[in-house]
Design a protein around this nucleic acid. Sequence first.
DNA 1: AGCATCTCCGAATGTAGTATGGTTATTAGG
DNA 2: CCTAATAACCATACTACATTCGGAGATGCT
Lengths: 153, 153
Amino acid sequence: MDDIDRALLAALQADATQAYAALGKAVGLSAGSAHERVRKLREREVIRHTTIDVDPAAVDRGVLSFVMLQSNAWMGDPPTRDALAAIPEIQEAHIIAGSASLLVKIRTSTPEQLQAVLRRVFDVDGVTGTQTIIVLETFFERPLNVTDPDPAR
Amino acid sequence: MDDIDRALLAALQADATQAYAALGKAVGLSAGSAHERVRKLREREVIRHTTIDVDPAAVDRGVLSFVMLQSNAWMGDPPTRDALAAIPEIQEAHIIAGSASLLVKIRTSTPEQLQAVLRRVFDVDGVTGTQTIIVLETFFERPLNVTDPDPAR
DNA sequence: AGCATCTCCGAATGTAGTATGGTTATTAGG
DNA sequence: CCTAATAACCATACTACATTCGGAGATGCT
């Protein structure tokens, strides 16, 4: 994992459809060598998937919200994860420190649909309350930064 | 945007490297027709990018947190967006309704680095306070659901 | 210094992306 | 209901790229 690998990751984050010849040119390698490095990055699972970024509004998921869940028990076990994963509108779920215990990211078509999802969330074992944060506008959502050095090391 | 388009989106979300022949087979079309549909989805920008999913821990961004920012003025303007976008550790930034006014998603190598980022956030014009949510464990982060019908319509 | 390992390149082979033309299905209008 | 126009689909051909290979150079370890 050197600077070339990081440059390859950044280039692929920006556009994963480009040819290895172009990729190699961008980092100063031949197409074959670029290919070999990318293959290894996939093998090591530094690159986990190749995927597409879909416009939420175009598929009727224009309403974004974050919901913090209070609970009366430890929620870090598989049954809770599976119950949340079964709700398709939930895009992310995290266990958090602090007064709440879970944070989920939800995308729905309308606020009414959000209400329907919250009803399902309340049915998850252990959930005793919710606090909803409605997003009015998204400034940006971008790939994880891979190039910036870490000043601490 | 019919069921076939949605199936194509779902298949590409799962694996954007697969050949059009396989893609067509998955949705019941020839390779050429699948290609044509995907081309149009890109043209319409339903598909915004093709990108890779990088393991945060592998690039030293293993610490995830969400931070809510209080402010003493309206923060929905470009200067605020640009100031936040200039901080590479910030992966998402949203304007939210409620007592805070912004929510940002931050990935750092360590809690100490998070502290350094928060210092930079405080220097953004208008920011009067922060509330930090540390993520202990991520249950899942997955692509936007594109297949489930919306029961409301 | 010597050996092993790794990374690179350039050329080959095979596979997949892309463009084309003709056919069928779908829709709109008379 | 019938016709015309449009759009979607398929099969084929062509081009470009991914992938593999052998060999050369660099790097690091003993």
